[in-house]
Amino acid sequence: MAGELSLATLNLVEETIATEYRQLAALPPYGPEVLYQVRDFRTLVSLHYVVGLAREMGIASPQEPVLSLPLGSNVITLLDLARVFATIRDGQLDLNAMRLDEGGLGIIARIEGPDGEVIYQPRHHQRRVLAPEIALAVSDILYNVMEHGTGRSAHDRVRLRSRDAEQDRLLAELDLKVPLFGKTGTANRFINAAFAGFLSDTATAEGFKPASGYTLATYVGFDDNRPMVRNTTRITGGGGALPVWSRLAAAIYRHADYSSPLELLDLAFAGADRVEVTYPSLGQVEIPVEADDGGVLSKEMVSGADQQPTARLVTFGRFRPDGSFEPSRFFQPYWRKGADN
């Protein structure tokens, strides 16, 4: 039968098309029932949704809803990038103004007069963009990027330290890794390289929480967009921007008071080599995955083998009786989450 169709089949197809056309022709020409059937329309709607979501997440630069959008054809600023990652961190956009194009940089905590009178204090406006579950799941993806992906070299540079000399001596002995969240970005032809991510909040006795830590974004590139290529060397996000990002992160972990709430001595006696991240309890599950195979469900997990998985993923869903995992499906448009806020 290969390469051949019967005449009856062709007739059936033609008849079906004609029937559907007649049904559509009977409807208003630009009604949803008609448009939803048009693939280009669906694609365009999706692109507009992405552009809208990007703006809600803090991208102020104009975005064109073009098909090449996922490839990075739209230009954004480093500030845009930082705001997006800050939004991913807890699912909320934090601005100093009511609107994105009205607010400045939120780097001024307040301005006081000589008598202590507060002259200026930015009014923070927060609005939820992503559901907390989405923020948590995406944060964990970014965490795994730093653990197993292109950002893992950051752990060679970033350690928990302290300004307190005594505390720092002990931390130097402990050599504790800290949770990092981030993603590399590399343009075609190595024209530019970026790395963005965020750090944990200051610790509690249980560990670090990602809710409201520092967000960092770094960029490496030439002013004239020359490719960063020499001989066999190619500058990528991981190779160019990540080292800068790592040094910043290390400095923050040294100078901010991250370690004092931690029971460092207990960590030492427990043999810990890192401070764990603690997510809020939203009903998430932690599943073992294959770190070197795109994060698919761990074979050991499925087969029930008593082996330590190489990686784990935090997501939402349930385990079926056969041991396989069924992810939850939930989608809420950003404007609905915004309305909730």
Binding site: E166, L170, E173, L174, L264, L265, A268, F269, G271
Partner: peptide
């Protein structure tokens, strides 16, 4: 006591 415990912790980390 805390200081001694700190020293003990340092030694234990080195031991491991």
């Amino acid at each position: 006591a805390t200081e001694i415990r700190r020293q003990a912790a340092t030694l234990f980390v080195r031991a491991r």
